[in-house]
């Protein structure tokens, strides 16, 4: 019998589902970072506000990369519904701690996708997500380095102003 299923899509149902879940995670990250950008701007941390705005844009790019991949392989990418985005945050340091936690969660999700790809022998998707796994090294590094600045510089006096000023300089050389 003619294989209509494979004519329509090259994606396994489970892989399509897990990729759509990841699209939602990326969109959620993008929204959280935008909320953080707004909060930083409100608190007077201009450089951090710019930093989070860029992060938000980057996460959206990641989301679209996954989104297009699902559609290109014959699947159906789902535009995610994003809810529960906080408008207020505890502290300047807390914002970056939350960023690191978010990035660690994203890494964990990509590891799960890689694991699933191996199990169903979808090496095309496995190859595709290598880019994201490499990207996560940078994301986690940057978040950790920024958190370390809180300890190195200290928050007292003009410490937070100093930290904010140094945020754009944190980069991963690889």
């Amino acid at each position: 019998m003619k294989d209509l299923l494979r004519l329509k899509t090259s994606l396994n149902e489970e892989i399509e589902k897990i990729l759509n879940e990841q699209i939602k995670v990326e969109a959620h990250s993008s929204s959280i970072y935008l909320a953080m950008s707004s909060w930083c701007d409100d608190q007077g941390y201009d450089f951090s506000a710019d930093f989070f705005a860029k992060q938000s844009e980057e996460e959206r790019t990641h989301m679209l990369k996954l989104f297009n991949y699902v559609n290109d392989r014959g699947g159906r990418a789902i535009s995610p519904e994003i809810v529960n985005i906080p408008a207020d945050f505890e502290s300047f340091r807390g914002v970056f701690e939350q960023m690191l936690e978010q990035e660690m969660y994203v890494t964990q999700q990509f590891n799960n996708i890689a694991d699933k790809c191996m199990k169903v022998k979808d090496f095309v998707t496995f190859q595709f997500i290598q880019w994201f796994l490499e990207e996560q090294i940078e994301e986690e590094y940057v978040a950790r380095r920024i958190l370390e600045m809180f300890d190195v510089i200290g928050e007292e006096g003009t410490g937070r102003w100093e930290i904010d000023k140094h945020i754009p300089k944190v980069s991963y050389e690889g």
């Binding site: 019998m1 003619k2 294989d3 209509l4 299923l5 494979r6």
Partner: peptide, 15 residues
Amino acid sequence: IELNSVVNECLNVTP
């Protein structure tokens, strides 16, 4: 339908 896909794959059937 999924079984048909698997069978096709195993038999390496090409149109």
